[in-house]
């Protein structure tokens, strides 16, 4: 057997691939589910915080800024570990899925708030003044005039950040979630063959390559006029 054959036999072993493909596909759907839950919760919570912050209540804003800074500074895996391995000490047990979901949602929330806030403050003051001078109230001005402009501005950075954080779903394998990476690693240790890892990598490419390319497109489509 030549080296090349041995390489193929290790990484592209048809028998092993056939055996573990179903597990990887299950993991694929689990990854998508986890990612969807994270995006929903994270973006919604982040937007809500940004709106709250625009009310300009000082104490509330300090609290928001602290929470946002906290989840931008902590590595996601540390948050997952704290929730999964730490919380039981407080008598609260989370499943691996719940811990990963909560941790990554909090991280996405923090980045989303930061991005939206930057977008809201980047809308010129004159927009507020023009709207208010026609008699529009704070809420109408915010939702009908300012927010739509902010949203347009934040789409590229938000898309990229969401993609980056969604890839963090792989971290859930550390807390025994059988998403793609978890399933692949289990496959490797049962079969003593790295083919399941190859399958896993392919699964991630199938999932994220289109998303990354979409992110590229969004960046040019919504390019800022300088």
């Amino acid at each position: 057997m030549t080296n090349w054959d041995r390489f193929l036999d290790s990484f592209f072993n048809a028998r092993v691939a056939a055996e573990y493909l179903p597990k990887i596909i299950e993991g694929f759907w689990l990854t998508i589910l986890l990612a969807a839950c994270i995006i929903l919760a994270g973006v919604a919570a982040g937007l809500a915080l940004a709106v709250l912050r625009s009310l300009g209540i000082r104490v509330l804003n300090w609290a928001i800024i602290f929470v946002v800074d906290l989840f931008r500074a902590l590595p996601p895996l540390v948050i997952i570990a704290l929730l999964y391995f730490g919380l039981p000490a407080a008598g609260l047990s989370l499943s691996g899925f719940a811990a990963a979901w909560l941790a990554l949602s909090l991280v996405l929330m923090a980045f989303t708030e930061e991005i939206f806030w930057a977008g809201i403050t980047a809308v010129p003051k004159g927009q507020w003044e023009a709207a208010r001078s026609t008699g529009l109230g704070f809420l109408d001005t915010f939702t009908l005039v300012v927010l739509p402009q902010a949203v347009r501005m934040v789409i590229p950075p938000l898309t990229n950040r969401t993609i980056a954080i969604t890839k963090g779903t792989a971290l859930a394998s550390v807390v025994a979630v059988q998403e793609i990476l978890g399933a692949a690693q289990a496959g490797v240790s049962f079969s003593f063959n790295p083919t399941p890892l190859t399958l896993g990598a392919v699964a991630y490419l199938v999932l994220f390559l289109p998303v990354v390319i979409l992110g590229r497109w969004v960046e040019t489509r919504f390019a800022w006029k300088r």
Binding site: P124, Q127, E129, A130, R132, S133, T134, G135, V145, Q149
Partner: peptide, 20 residues
């Protein structure tokens, strides 16, 4: 104030039209 402002139109140097 919002009701009162309807009776006072304002035009700005920088237009301030809503771009969207």
């Amino acid at each position: 104030i919002n009701k009162a402002r309807q009776r006072i139109g304002m035009v700005f140097q920088s237009f301030n039209l809503y771009p969207h």
